[in-house]
Simulated assay, not measured.
Amino acid sequence: MAKYSRGMSDDSCSSDDEEEEEPPFAMKHTNTISLCCLIAYFAVGVIFLTWQQGWEVVTSLYVVVQIVTTIGYGDVTIEHGGKTFMTIYVLLGTVLVASLLDRIIQAALSNAEKGLDQSLERAEHLLKHNAHHASPRPSLPPLATAMLIYCFFVAVWVIFFALYDSCTCSFGATMVEGCNAENCSETGGTVVGWTDALYMAVITFSTVGFGDYSPQSKLGRTLASLWMILGVLSFGNLVAAVSSTLHSFRASYLKKCRMTRKVFDSVDADKSGSIDRHEFMQYILVREGKVSKETLESIENLFDLLDSDHNQALTFDEIHNQLVKVDCQ
């Protein structure tokens, strides 16, 4: 039963017109579905590549991770058919990753909303204590935390490949012919120094993936299959933190600006000489960068379209009859 109908008699709720449609299962459990799709995507890719290409599971997983993270070293490629499948598989992977990125963006927007709440609380606190000094500068811990996380993943990658994988003969399709593990560097093995390992980490986590340096050993590819995902996410988190910090500095500067008469007159839509609660709310949302003036105008236009009797108030029937019947609470 729809929530707005609770408390009413059974007879009054029996009409089909009063029953609201339940949100689709996919809308209620988007995160769970995205995770299941990602797991299924990995499984299908690993099984197919292991069977069709004759690769070991480690190599198949390593290639699938490259596809999902869009790194694409190019060190292990499709050689025995299967290109049609891989073409479709990569396209589906791009769509899947885009869906997951959407979840991340939504989380970022949620954090931004919390930031707005904190900003308003600080402003209220300052007003209550008659503080005349400027608002405090935005703190840097989020950026510092993002940098530390990114450096941690880079450091683990560098230490592993500069020490354990400093020279390898590889295996399977990328095995170096004539290479001897006991005399790796002398027999043509792939050598990775500290600078090379750092270069490989940065190029990998930025999803550039030149492919001139890439994991070669079984353990190296096993670690890389996990570390590429975490490293790419940490790099994306760092980029978002830098962008957020720059935006915060700009917003902090704008907050210090006093309201001018011109701005006041533009906010005072009804030209009453004062700003009411509704107008002040719109002003704060625009100043904080949470919505644009165009968005507010669109909302006002929607209100006017729904207000069929033009009395500047919406009844339940006016909203219920014109908007989609979905229980959003």
Rank of each mutant, 00 (worst) to 15 (best):
T295F: 09
E186P: 03
I33A: 08
M86K: 08
Y73W: 13
V267W: 01
L35M: 11
H80V: 04
R221V: 04
L148D: 08
T30P: 10
A224Y: 02
T69F: 06
N301M: 04
D304H: 14
E56P: 00
S206R: 13
G231E: 04
Y4W: 09
D270I: 09
G82M: 11
T295R: 05
L306K: 08
F303Q: 07
F303S: 03
P138D: 01
T187W: 01
E318T: 00
I203F: 11
E18N: 08
S308T: 14
I284M: 09
I299R: 09
D265Y: 06
Q66R: 02
Y41P: 01
P23T: 09
A201G: 06
M8Y: 10
L92I: 10
Q282E: 12
S34F: 07
Q106G: 09
I149H: 09
H278T: 13
T207S: 15
Q118R: 15
C37V: 03
E20K: 11
N180Q: 15
L302W: 09
P24A: 12
T315A: 06
D268R: 12
I229H: 11
I104R: 10
S252W: 00
S217L: 03
S252E: 00
V154D: 01
L91M: 10
L100R: 06
G231A: 02
L238Y: 04
G236H: 08
S308N: 07
V232A: 05
F48Y: 15
V76L: 03
Y213W: 09
V97T: 12
K128A: 12
H129Q: 15
Q118C: 08
P136A: 00
K114P: 02
E297G: 02
H133W: 11
A134R: 00
C13S: 13
T174K: 02
L302I: 15
T260E: 04
Y89L: 08
D17S: 15
G236Y: 06
H320F: 14
N183Y: 11
I319W: 12
Y73Q: 04
L198D: 02
I229L: 14
A134N: 01
V263N: 05
W51C: 12
T245V: 03
T30F: 14
D265W: 02
Q118W: 05
T315P: 03
L91I: 14
V158R: 00
F210Y: 12
